[in-house]
């Protein structure tokens, strides 16, 4: 019993210690952002690595998620004779929830883990120390461009995910199951609100972008500089980001869609 309490206490202390370190790190990253006004080329390079290279997985996943939504939605709605509302159902599910959440989870697996591994290996091979000794701040030069690129990429990837998902739903609902095209698009247009649905979805994905990229770059920077340490940090990035996104999603949903 005592051992269990001790373990709980130690784990709690460890959690808060890391949270504190992560918060200071986040503050330092924000301090490094103004430097990027003069070196935006660094952000563009990272936008390619973090954003463009994630496109394939986002597009393919978005398409399949939309197709599944179309199929499941049709099977449920047709029992009530409401299959013409399929467009609204697919679009609302994607824009409000699945677009931001699934694309953030995919982002954590594809780009987040890569960011952690890259920064962790730079630390393990003394590249970050080398930069410090060359009077180049790795926080501004390495971490901040990656962080900003992640925050910019995330809402764009979520938007692409949702748009492709709607196309997938359309393909299954209208193309294969015979839902009326006009009803599919017009109901979607009439029922989806710009401020309540789309804007809230965008806000969600921006928050997820901050959370996912923050965790990824922090885990890399804080990794124990050994191959095992980097491997553990990469795993932690995916696990912690996934849990954090699902938790934050609940809070944001509760606040946005009361």
């Amino acid at each position: 019993m005592i051992g269990w309490i001790r373990y709980l206490g130690r784990s709690g202390l460890h959690f808060f210690e890391r949270l504190g370190r992560g918060s200071i790190f986040f503050f330092n990253v924000l301090m490094g952002l103004p430097f990027l006004f003069f070196r935006f080329r660094l952000v563009i390079q990272q936008l390619y690595v973090v954003g463009v290279l994630s496109l394939l997985i986002i597009i393919v996943s978005g398409l399949f998620v939309g197709m599944v939504l179309g199929l499941q939605g049709y099977n449920t709605l047709v029992d009530f004779g409401a299959e013409e509302s399929l467009g609204v159902m697919v679009a609302l599910s994607l824009v409000r929830e699945l677009g931001p959440v699934v694309s953030a989870l995919l982002f954590a697996g594809r780009a987040g883990s890569a960011l952690t591994a890259e920064i962790g290996l730079m630390k393990a091979t003394e590249q970050l120390s080398g930069m410090e000794m060359m009077a180049v701040d790795p926080m501004s030069r390495v971490v901040a461009p990656r962080f900003l690129a992640g925050v910019i990429s995330m809402p764009l990837l979520a938007a692409i995910f949702s748009a492709i998902g709607v196309m997938g739903g359309y393909f299954v609902g209208v193309g294969l199951l015979g839902v009326d095209t006009g009803a599919f698009w017009s109901q979607m247009q009439a029922k989806i609100s710009w401020s309540d649905d789309i804007l809230n979805g965008v806000i969600k994905s921006v928050v997820f972008g901050v959370v996912a990229t923050w965790i990824a770059v922090f885990e890399g920077y804080d990794a124990i500089p050994t191959s095992e340490g980097v491997s553990r940090a990469t795993t932690r990035t995916v696990v912690h980001t996934s849990l954090a996104i699902l938790g934050v999603d609940f809070v944001l949903t509760a606040l946005m869609f009361e």
């Binding site: 091979t125 003394e126 590249q127 120390s129 080398g130 410090e132 000794m133 060359m134 009077a135 701040d137």
Partner: peptide
């Protein structure tokens, strides 16, 4: 931070691993 980085511009360090940017 600023003064330290200014001083480091006048220092060179050769790491054991070389620490080249890969």
């Amino acid at each position: 931070h600023k003064e330290l980085y200014k001083l480091r511009k006048r220092m060179g360090m050769l790491f054991q691993s070389g620490a080249l940017l890969t």
